[in-house]
Design a protein around this nucleic acid. Structure first.
Length: 423
RNA sequence: GGAGAGGUGGCCGAGCGGCUGAAGGCAGCUGCCUGCUAAGCAGUUGUGGGGGAAACUCCACCCCGGGUUCGAAUCCCGGCCUCUCCGCCA
């Protein structure tokens, strides 16, 4: 959420951002409501002031045994007017709130303006794409041959877009989770969290999934709980409505969770294999930092995520998203994409974003730069470090051999009871 | 799921319907004093919003939302959360 004052004073800039992010929103409605609000507020507050003054007078008169009928009758009409104004104010503020939640964050100046994916800027390519002397198989073939992936039974017990890992496949999944968590906690200084997978509506609104993306979320209607689409939601909301101490910043959190996405409207796209699924595992990174550091922190966050792929020896590229591809709440975002030779595609495994104070304002995370200063909003960031099924795809397809076996990357072997190859 | 207790400022804790943004204590900050430390004395310390160039000023907030009243932290209704006991359960 943007600051109403900021919107008032920078309306052209915000309109530009709405356009570049391809959102549809009439900002004038908000500016109008804002004006109404302040007008009502002015009248209501001056009436309140009057009422407070008379309240004291009435109390004093009663003490002195004077008749207060006239004053009370007068205040009755004042109170009635206040009631009406309050009702109006409530209506206006409710509308305003609903509109404000739909205003996207303003992209950082370094973000390229563009319509869609094609305008994203390539910033890095890492690793070598190996030349194979055989035709690489897609992961679903490898998974079937090796007996580690059972997509048929997954769709029997749940439906399409679900995965069953079996045997060493399950072990590989678990090993990757542990490897990543160890890397981030031991080497990069993140604190490990194990949060709930079900969160309430406030949390989903706080990080910006709601109201815009409600259709993409799994909702438990009986209890109004949402299944988290990413650990970003519980992690960033941990400090909702808190004022943090400056010396406690930056905060680095990492968590493994399952993630749940309906992928509504995505049917027909990447339905084969496990490129796009409704439930997947992910290790997430979240940072809460002082505003002046947030762009340095973004670069470091990106490096932390990249290191996962470097250690796994998977070729990848990094792209800076253009305005049209940038998510609603983000000011700047780098995607990391792993090369998958079996499907001959780059697959997005990590998205690293700086939200500046956009989420912090929604959920009320502030800090005091010095013990005596006024609270200021923090900046929040998050990145995937990294998402699993596609990383597994990367491993299977990149490390496959002509015999149809898959070599296990060195760093994972200690986690896999020393297994060096899936046969 | 059943029965009970409770939710007040950074923390502890008081609060007859008006004089309470809220006693008192602790912690923090600022002065004074003291050869360090500790103690002592005085002052000060919440958040959000409106108006103002500013000094400043006004309004709201005692879990949340309604209501009663001229006036509510204080009364009434609904909700959420915490704790204790019983039941059920991986």
């Amino acid at each position: 959420m943007l600051d109403l004052k900021f919107i008032r004073e920078n309306s052209e800039k915000v309109k530009e951002a709405i356009k570049n992010k391809r959102e549809k929103l009439d900002l004038d409605v908000i500016l109008n409501l804002d004006e109404q609000r302040r007008k009502i507020l002015l009248e209501a507050e001056s009436l309140r002031q009057k009422r407070n003054e008379f309240s004291k007078i009435i109390a004093q008169m009663k003490k002195e045994g004077k008749n207060t009928d006239k004053e009370i009758a007068q205040m009755k009409t004042v109170s009635d007017r206040i009631t009406v104004l309050d009702q109006n104010l409530r209506d206006v503020e409710q509308q305003l709130e609903q509109w404000l939640l739909r205003v996207p964050n303003v992209p950082h100046p370094s973000v390229p303006v563009g319509e869609d994916e094609s305008a994203n800027k390539l910033v890095k390519e890492w690793g070598e794409i190996k030349k194979l002397d055989f035709k690489p198989l897609p992961h679903w073939e490898l998974g079937r041959i090796l007996g580690i992936l059972d997509l048929e039974r997954a769709s029997k017990i749940s439906g399409s877009g679900f995965i069953v890992f079996t045997g060493k496949g399950a072990l590989l999944e678990r090993s990757l989770i542990n490897f990543m968590l160890d890397l981030h906690t031991q080497k990069h200084g993140y604190k490990e969290i194990f949060p709930p997978y079900l969160v309430n509506r406030d949390s989903m609104t706080g990080t910006g999934q709601l109201p815009k993306l409600e259709e993409d979320m799994y909702l438990l209607k009986n209890d109004d709980y949402f299944l988290i689409p990413t650990a970003e939601v519980p992690l960033t909301n941990l400090h909702r409505d808190e004022i943090l101490k400056a010396e406690g910043l930056p905060i680095y959190y990492t968590a493994y969770t399952a993630c749940f996405r309906r992928e509504a409207g995505a049917y027909g796209k990447e339905t084969k294999g496990m490129i796009r699924v409704h439930q997947f595992d992910k290790v997430e990174l979240v940072k809460i930092v002082e505003p002046q550091n947030s762009y340095d922190e973004l670069e470091k966050l990106l490096q932390n995520a990249e290191e996962v792929l470097q250690l796994l020896g998977l070729p990848y590229r990094v792209r800076l998203l253009c305005t049209g591809d940038l998510s609603f709440a983000a000011a700047k975002c780098y995607d990391i994409e792993v090369w998958a030779p079996g499907v001959e595609k780059y697959l997005e495994v990590s998205s690293n974003s700086n939200f500046e104070d956009f989420q912090a304002r929604r959920i009320g995370i502030k800090y005091k730069p010095t013990p005596n200063s006024k609270p200021e909003l923090v900046h929040t960031l998050n990145g995937s470090g990294v998402a699993l099924p596609r990383t597994v795809i990367g491993i299977l397809e990149n490390y496959q051999t002509a015999k149809g076996t898959v070599v296990i990357p060195e760093v994972l072997r200690p986690y896999m009871h020393g297994i060096s190859e899936l046969t």
